[in-house]
């Protein structure tokens, strides 16, 4: 019951917290799990474990979305964050040979600043959300977060922000490509005849056969 007590001050006048439904209890439990996983993510000294706990935290968030009937967002969360972002993070960690066991240098002098920023963000968000919704009750009908509903909202009411965001992302993408290819021209060392060059891309002529 301590969970309910913790949640109580957020919405004291909510009509059903005295007799919570199963979904609400699960929601709170998953929320606690997500919070725990997130805390372990930032406190553990083992780099890869941190990434794996991030998987748990992000997966828990997807479950929360599901419980709020936002099905589409939940699957996008899984696809993008679990399937791609974490894989990218793990790829990076493996490429830098993250050691098994504790990394002695997996610490940052900025942690107090980070803690302050994190707490401030959390405080702002909680205040904002609590202040915005107070005791209003949103009825979570089935299908409110389906792909159809999400699509209609996105492309009917929010088309302009959506397009602006895509242009922004495109610009970032082009920028990344330009940055990564900048040194490519002119500075290429010319191949010396008669010597094997290390790092020569093999099979440049046979690519078509694949």
């Amino acid at each position: 019951m301590s969970l309910l007590a913790a949640a109580g001050p957020l919405e004291p006048a909510a009509r059903s917290f005295l007799s919570p439904t199963g979904v609400e209890i699960v929601f709170l439990l998953v929320g606690v799990a997500v919070l725990g996983a997130a805390l372990v993510t930032v406190t553990t000294r083992q780099l890869v474990h941190a990434a794996l706990w991030l998987v748990v935290a992000l997966g828990g968030l997807a479950v929360e979305f599901l419980l709020l009937t936002a099905e589409f967002i939940a699957w996008v969360q899984v696809l993008i964050y679990l399937g791609s972002v974490v894989v990218l993070v793990l790829f990076g960690l493996m490429l830098t040979k993250a050691p098994i066991g504790r990394s002695p240098d997996a610490d940052s002098g900025n942690r107090w600043a980070a803690l302050a920023v994190g707490l401030a963000t959390a405080g702002t968000l909680v205040t904002l959300v609590v202040d915005a919704f107070r005791t209003s009750w949103i009825d979570l009908g089935a299908g409110a977060g389906s792909a159809k509903a999400t699509g209609e909202y996105l492309f009917r009411h929010w088309v302009l922000p959506f397009e602006a965001l895509s242009v922004l992302l495109l610009a970032a993408l082009v920028g990344a490509i330009v940055l990564s290819r900048r040194d490519d021209e002119g500075k290429k060392p010319r191949p010396r005849p008669g010597k094997l060059r290390a790092g020569k891309p093999v099979g440049t002529s046979s690519g078509k056969e694949s």
Partner: peptide, 16 residues
């Protein structure tokens, strides 16, 4: 409801 998304998302986890 979003079956395709679900399938592709969950399959991506397997690679983890």
């Amino acid at each position: 409801d979003a079956g395709i998304f679900f399938v592709l998302a969950v399959m991506g986890i397997g690679v983890l």
